[in-house]
């Protein structure tokens, strides 16, 4: 089966400093894969290159076998990649439903239409997506007054609106309470299972990573130093040295099972 996402020799330098250096990996269909590593290791740079926000210095990115390297974000989105951000970027002046409707208008190519009232377009479809993430009851609230965790769920609904085959989630649970983190990642896992979507996410909460990721990649100083299952990565001496440390900062193995 072709990998949904395949990355070959991805590199990026900023003024001579190699932020990402020769990274290769694949994401299989239906896989929930985590990318971890210390701050400044190149995770965000990597993500921004996958989604087209940054032009790689070298290397190729393939989506279902098609090369998408260096395409602008909006084009990559139209090819079926959804993205959520570490700091949410929803439209503050719109209601919850309108935020999803906006993405649907884009998906259905109605952006330049001048005649209809926008608030009536694709409302049913938007409500259905909000229902998936459990936000339908808040559809008509202003986005500016949402609680943080609800914003994250809204972002997920927006990311689903173009029926993506791949979701890129940048620190999806940053800033949430432990319980909310578990709920959001559970929701994401369910969506992955139900819709056959693949997910690549970065994360700092090792508890979340070890509990939900099928596979984990570790990035350090721009290079991939590990790519494997949770227990393989935990046992990796190099990963322990540069990243995980003595294990005092996350739950012991199996405590989530």
């Amino acid at each position: 089966m072709t990998a949904v996402l395949k990355v070959e020799g991805l590199s990026k330098s900023f003024g001579g400093v190699k932020a990402v250096n020769g990274v290769d990996f694949e994401v299989a269909p239906g896989e929930l894969k985590a990318l971890i590593g210390p701050n400044g290791a190149g995770k965000s740079t990597c993500f921004n290159m996958l989604m087209g926000q940054l032009m790689p210095s070298a290397g190729k990115v393939y989506l279902k076998g098609e090369q998408i390297t260096g395409l602008p974000p909006r084009v990559i989105w139209r090819k079926g990649v959804g993205r959520t951000f570490q700091i949410t970027g929803t439209y503050q002046s719109m209601t919850v439903a309108e935020n999803v409707q906006m993405a649907l208008m884009s998906h259905h190519r109605k952006l330049f239409s001048l005649l209809p009232y926008a608030y009536r377009l694709f409302r049913e479809e938007a409500l259905a997506l909000l229902d998936v993430v459990g936000m339908a009851d808040q559809a008509d609230r202003s986005c500016a007054i949402l609680a943080y965790g609800d914003l994250k769920r809204l972002e997920l609904a927006i990311a689903l609106s173009n029926d993506p085959m791949l979701l890129l989630m940048d620190e999806p649970t940053a800033g949430m309470a432990p319980k909310e983190r578990i709920n959001l990642m559970q929701l994401t896992s369910d969506i992955v299972r139900d819709r056959g979507i693949s997910v690549l996410f970065t994360e700092h909460d090792m508890d979340v990573v070890f509990a939900h990721a099928h596979h984990i990649m570790v990035l350090n100083r721009g290079e991939l130093i590990a790519d494997g299952t949770a227990s393989e990565v935990r046992a990796n001496a190099r990963v322990q040295e540069v990243y995980l440390g003595g294990g005092t900062l996350y739950a012991a193995e199996g405590s989530h099972a």
Binding site: W77, R83, F85, G89, L111, S161
Partner: peptide, 15 residues
């Protein structure tokens, strides 16, 4: 208005 509220989000959703 979407481009005004969040250009990044707009770009990331096909706008």
């Amino acid at each position: 208005r979407a481009t005004r509220d969040s250009a990044r989000q707009a770009e990331a959703t096909g706008i």
